[in-house]
Nucleic acid binder design. Structure first.
Lengths: 190, 190
DNA sequence: ATAAAATTATAACGACTGGTCTACTATAAT
DNA sequence: ATTATAGTAGACCAGTCGTTATAATTTTAT
């Protein structure tokens, strides 16, 4: 039983990968079924409401992947500044890899659809909120105030999304590196 | 001679508006010609290379609009911290307006196309660089070091792009407001 | 073993895509 | 008056889009 994964998950993973790379409208269902090797009949069997439904599952899948990554780093590194720096440096290194497939995890879909699909918009909003909750929790458990933790978690989230955008656009890890280096400034305890 | 603008500019403005709202793949040429009232024959007369060529002009148009906005605020407000805060607050207020058509100015197109169209990727990169140059210039003229000015300009750019993304996704000006409030921290002179 | 249910496999649908092409109109130079 | 040029107008193309329909097959329950 080597690689017998179910079709539903295979579709979600392929969709997640492709949407991250070129957004919602930039990827067609034909490409998703080609990449996944799952026939179109199965796609509409598992996602009767079609592309939008699949996209929401893909967003949730991406969200969980990011949550795992954040948790892993946060468990490994106690200091919140160092932990967040490590997270961001890790991203900057991916850019260096040839043919990297980084991309704004859900930022592209969010900005394409915020005005056209409420279900997608809400799925993206929930992802951002969940990530921010993790940052906030880490900060609070390190002695930061409730208020500052909440505010900083928003900033960190914005910096990461914006940093990824700048780095993929300029094909350079530099923007993310600069962001990581400036982290301590934001985290001066008040 | 009330509203006799040339077709080329009318097309660019319509494209700029629509691409900001739903990105490159989310907007079709038919929608652009409908919104602008310019026929398809004229579109391909002015932009023989088609959608990609029009998109690049639209990106440059958006870039110039943002440059004007930044310059206007920077000329009006001398202190760099206050100026950047004003810029970001202004964005947060747009979100509050019903049916606002804010959107990441070029972030959506950039993240959709960074891996598929080099000409578009480069146009977006140049826009980011131009905006950062303005931030940097403002900081240097206020006595910040070359190095810090450059780094902060990257951070500010990332914060604005990320902040807009968070604000449009959550349908709230809050993220941008928080970012504006935390600006002073980033700008502690070293 | 058989029936029912779950899943896969294709083909086709109408709508729309970006792009091409040709006919037409307006203006100005000759 | 004629011709040249710039721009307008929109029908049309092949291909792709998301979606639907239905048949074939596999899996599960009895």
């Amino acid at each position: 039983m080597v690689d017998k994964k179910n079709s539903r998950d295979t579709l979600i993973e392929a969709a997640s990968r492709l949407f991250r790379l070129r957004g919602y409208y930039g990827v067609g269902l034909n490409e998703i079924i080609e990449e996944s090797g799952i026939p179109k009949g199965s796609l509409y069997y598992y996602f009767p409401k079609g592309k939008e439904e699949l996209a929401i599952e893909a967003i949730n899948h991406t969200k969980e992947m990011v949550i795992s990554k954040i948790q892993e780093v946060f468990e490994r590194i106690e200091d919140p500044i160092e932990a967040m720096q490590a997270l961001i440096y890790q991203l900057s290194e991916v850019i260096g890899e040839s043919d990297h497939k980084l991309g704004m995890p859900i930022g592209t879909i969010a900005s394409e659809n915020y005005s056209t699909s409420e279900p997608i918009r809400i799925a993206c909003q929930l992802a951002f909120e969940d990530w921010q909750s993790l940052y906030k929790k880490k900060l609070i458990s390190s002695g930061y105030s409730e208020k500052q933790s909440k505010e900083v978690s928003i900033i960190v989230n914005a910096l990461i999304e914006g940093g990824i955008l700048l780095s993929i656009t300029s094909k350079s890890g530099k923007p993310l590196q600069v962001i990581a280096e400036q982290m301590p400034l934001l985290l001066i305890k008040k």
